[in-house]
């Protein structure tokens, strides 16, 4: 292991990968930095940010990648891609460095569906539904929740004829084409969310 170079002053200004920042006695590495051989080094192109209270140093990058943009507790628009008994798979969209939506698959467990006594994930969502979910883990596997009135299904199609479903009453959607009724965990924003702008913005 290379020994950290002894330097009197802390790094300032632009940092590139491999640039020395400080010794580990001075600061611990947080995001954008790493520790190696007793020293703290930058792992990204960015500017250093020192936390003198907690003795952490991080490097604020100029480019933030799509996985790093996924924020814990933030709401995301997603599409249900698969539904099993206990969980559903939801594709949520982050943004890449150029602002393009980048899909990530996340799990929605039946216990986090926002409906008490739901016995199966099929009572909450169905494949193809557009949902608004909250990210509850930002490590893999990503997990999402639909607990909250604003979270849940915002757009759905009829399982029988494929026509758009409209809100009927609490937790029930109705197809005006064939009269079929279906249950979902419906968001208060059902039918009102502009999905295209939600995906892009």
């Amino acid at each position: 292991m290379p020994r950290a170079k002894k330097k009197k002053s802390l790094a300032k200004g632009l940092l590139l990968p491999g640039f020395y920042i400080s010794t580990i006695e001075e600061f611990s590495a947080k995001s954008g930095a790493y520790e190696d051989g007793g020293g703290v080094y930058s792992s990204k192109v960015g500017l250093p940010e020192y936390d003198g209270m907690e003795h952490y140093v991080s490097v604020k990058p100029f480019k933030v990648s799509a996985p790093e943009r996924l924020i814990l507790g933030a709401s995301y628009v997603g599409l249900v891609s698969d539904v099993h008994k206990n969980f559903a798979q939801v594709t949520i969209f982050s943004k890449d460095q150029l602002g393009r939506p980048v899909p990530f698959s996340a799990l929605l467990h039946v216990s986090r569906g926002g409906v008490r006594r739901a016995r199966a994930a099929t009572e909450l969502v169905k494949p193809g539904d557009a949902v608004v979910v909250k990210l509850i883990t930002n490590w893999v596997p990503l997990q999402v929740s639909m607990e909250g009135p604003e979270l849940g299904v915002v757009r759905a199609s009829c399982s029988k004829c494929g026509a758009p479903l409209t809100w009927d009453h609490d937790g029930v959607l109705k197809c005006h084409a064939c009269g079929h009724r279906e249950i979902r965990k419906v968001s208060v924003d059902y039918g009102r969310k502009n999905l295209h702008s939600a995906l892009i913005n």
């Binding site: 590139l16 990968p17 491999g18 790493y34 080094y41 792992s43 990204k44 100029f62 480019k63 460095q97």
Partner: peptide
């Protein structure tokens, strides 16, 4: 890779 913001130990 550095330009893309990928975390790297060094160039």
């Amino acid at each position: 890779l550095a330009d893309a913001g990928i975390p790297m130990r060094d160039l």
